[in-house]
């Protein structure tokens, strides 16, 4: 390679970097960007307000499920593959992470990585039926696969290998220090969101969205649907896996319950509430969900009922989730304040 072409290459990298810098700068000047930054600073400051394990615990749970819901949103919102079996990736990573921590004494981060990678392998596995199935059929198939996982892990016959109905327990928390745990989860959430949003904005994201909008058209544009759908499933499974591993550690273990359709529905509800294909809407949905759940924790049955009503109202009056309308209203008010 000649020196000239090398310097040319360098120049391009530099240009790219400065390009992204100015993009970030511009973004931070938009209303949305500022609000996001304020929210992030707010999240960073929470531990100054309280170091109570319980309050931080709610935030931690909400952050874990933000990642999980975002992983679903990535698959459904960006690629158009509506999975009702997202808990498969969540659960399998929870199991693998727990197994490596508990029986092989690996550090938590290594176990979490392995767990998520096994999740990716399952993403590949579950992605294969998705190649032929569309819409409700894919939803149904993934839900059934999730149930199969649930009953397989629950099955008494497999108890010696899979842990039976009681699963794996005695998993230590990431840290005894609740504040430290909080920040680790915050970093995981922010990083996951950045990566997912970045993929969404990348060229690969454009291809995913083209598959969502018109898969035949995408194929006619020379796109290998098999490859991209599987990649989407794998990326989604990776982040669902991160969430699952964190969930297992936060709850000190796993049992077959992690494969329940319940958790898949949690993800769908949170992402839909926040707004599909927004990624950050998942965080809004998740925080909303868990704060509401804790508020109504004395009446667990009622809380599900109330949440269902809220969801119905949201779907009726804001079918694209609450994130966008809320942002618009806030912006309107803010513009008025500034006298624009």
């Amino acid at each position: 390679m000649s020196a000239k072409s090398l310097s040319k290459g360098k120049g391009r990298v530099k240009k790219k970097l400065s390009g992204s810098k100015s993009y970030l700068l511009n973004w931070s000047k938009t209303f949305r960007g500022r609000l996001t930054i304020i929210c992030l600073i707010g999240l960073c400051l929470i531990p100054l307000l309280t170091q109570n394990r319980y309050y931080l615990g709610i935030f931690i749970t909400a952050m874990i499920f933000s990642i999980f819901a975002a992983s679903w949103d990535f698959l459904a919102g960006f690629t158009g593959q509506v999975s009702f079996g997202q808990a498969i990736f969540f659960g399998i990573s929870g199991y693998i992470t727990s197994y490596f921590i508990r029986y092989l004494y690996l550090p938590w981060w290594a176990s979490l990585l392995i767990g998520s990678l096994v999740g990716v392998a399952f993403g590949l596995l579950i992605g294969i039926p998705a190649l032929r199935l569309k819409g409700p059929y894919l939803g149904l198939a993934t839900m059934v696969l999730g149930l199969i996982m649930f009953y397989t892990f629950l099955n008494v016959k497999f108890e010696p290998w899979l842990g039976g109905s009681e699963g794996i327990s005695k998993i230590p928390q990431i840290s005894r220090n609740a504040v430290e745990t909080y920040y680790i989860h915050l970093i995981f959430m922010i990083t996951s969101f950045l990566i997912l949003i970045w993929i969404g904005k990348s060229k690969m994201g454009t291809v995913f969205k083209s598959i969502r909008d018109d898969d035949i058209g995408a194929e006619a544009s020379g796109i290998n649907l098999t490859k991209y759908k599987l990649i989407a499933f794998m990326i989604s499974a990776f982040f669902a896996g991160i969430a699952g591993g964190l969930f297992a550690m936060h709850n000190r273990g796993v049992n077959p319950g992690v494969f329940q359709p319940l958790y898949s529905f949690y993800a769908i509800v949170m992402a839909s509430l926040g707004g599909i294909a927004t990624i950050s809407g998942s965080a809004l949905g998740s925080y909303f969900f868990w704060f509401a759940a804790e508020l109504f924790s004395e009446w667990p049955d009622v809380s599900v009922f109330i949440f269902a009503i809220i969801l119905i109202l949201v779907i009726r009056f804001a079918e694209h989730g609450i994130l966008k309308p809320v942002l618009e209203r806030l912006k309107d008010i803010w513009d008025l304040v500034l006298g624009k």
Binding site: G57, I58, T61, N255, G257, L262, S297, P300
Partner: peptide
């Protein structure tokens, strides 16, 4: 339909 987060919380 068990959600263990409820117990931990």
């Amino acid at each position: 339909v068990l959600d263990v987060t409820k117990g931990v919380s």
